[in-house]
Deep mutational scan, measured.
Amino acid sequence: MQAFVKTLTGKTITLEVEPSDTIENVKAKIQDKEGIPPDQQRLIFAGKQLEDGRTLSDYNIQKESTLHLVLR
């Protein structure tokens, strides 16, 4: 499924993900596309910070959801 990641600069990245993907996995995909190390990434969805060990389905993130990427 497709999900979108919006950065603070307003850029939107499109990712191909599965509901079973972990947040860690998603961060690795963002690193592949953008070169941002996962340890600098914080992903926010519905106002919550997403934890590495959880999956997209844990957070009820469905296709075409938009996550927000904040860098630390």
Rank of each mutant, 00 (worst) to 15 (best):
G47N: 06
T9R: 09
L43P: 00
K11L: 11
T7I: 12
K11T: 08
K27Y: 04
I30Y: 02
E24T: 08
Q2R: 15
Q2H: 12
E64M: 10
V5I: 13
D58R: 02
Q2K: 14
N25V: 14
I36G: 02
Q31A: 13
K63P: 15
I23M: 03
N25T: 14
I13T: 03
R72C: 11
Y59F: 04
A3G: 03
V26E: 00
K27H: 02
K27N: 00
T55C: 06
R54H: 13
L50G: 01
E18L: 15
L43D: 00
Q41M: 14
G10T: 02
T14C: 09
I13R: 01
V26T: 03
G35Y: 03
A3V: 15
G53Q: 11
F45N: 03
K63E: 12
V70I: 13
Q31C: 11
V70A: 08
V26G: 00
Q62N: 10
L8P: 15
T9M: 10
D39P: 07
Q2P: 10
K48C: 09
T12F: 10
E24D: 07
G10H: 04
I30W: 00
S20A: 09
T12N: 05
Q31E: 10
Q31P: 01
Q62A: 11
L71D: 07
P37S: 08
T14P: 06
Q40P: 02
H68K: 07
N60R: 07
K48Y: 10
K33P: 02
E34R: 05
R42S: 12
Q41N: 02
V17S: 01
A46K: 15
T7M: 15
T9F: 13
I36T: 07
E34V: 15
I13G: 00
G47M: 04
E64K: 07
A28S: 11
E64C: 10
E18R: 14
T66L: 10
Q41F: 14
A3D: 02
R72V: 15
T14S: 10
S65D: 13
L69I: 07
H68G: 05
P19V: 08
L71N: 07
Q40D: 10
V17A: 03
K29V: 04
T55M: 10
Q41I: 12
K63A: 15
I36P: 04
P38G: 07
L67T: 02
L71S: 08
K48R: 11
A28Y: 12
L71I: 13
Q62I: 13
E64A: 08
L56P: 00
K6C: 11
I13W: 05
L56T: 01
P19Q: 07
D32W: 10
H68D: 08
N60Y: 07
L8S: 15
S57M: 11
L71K: 07
Q62V: 14
V5E: 02
P19C: 06
R54F: 14
P38F: 12
P38Q: 13
G35L: 04
Q31L: 10
N60P: 04
K29L: 09
I61K: 03
D32G: 09
N60G: 12
Q41T: 04
I61N: 02
F4T: 08
P38A: 15
A46L: 12
D58T: 04
L69T: 01
R54C: 10
F45S: 03
L69D: 01
N25C: 11
L56V: 07
Q2S: 10
A3E: 02
D21F: 07
L43V: 04
K6P: 02
T22M: 07
I30N: 00
A46H: 14
E16F: 14
Q49S: 12
L56M: 05
I23E: 01
S57G: 11
T66I: 14
D52C: 05
I23A: 03
D58C: 03
G47V: 02
A3W: 05
S20Y: 11
S57W: 08
K27Q: 02
R72N: 13
L15C: 02
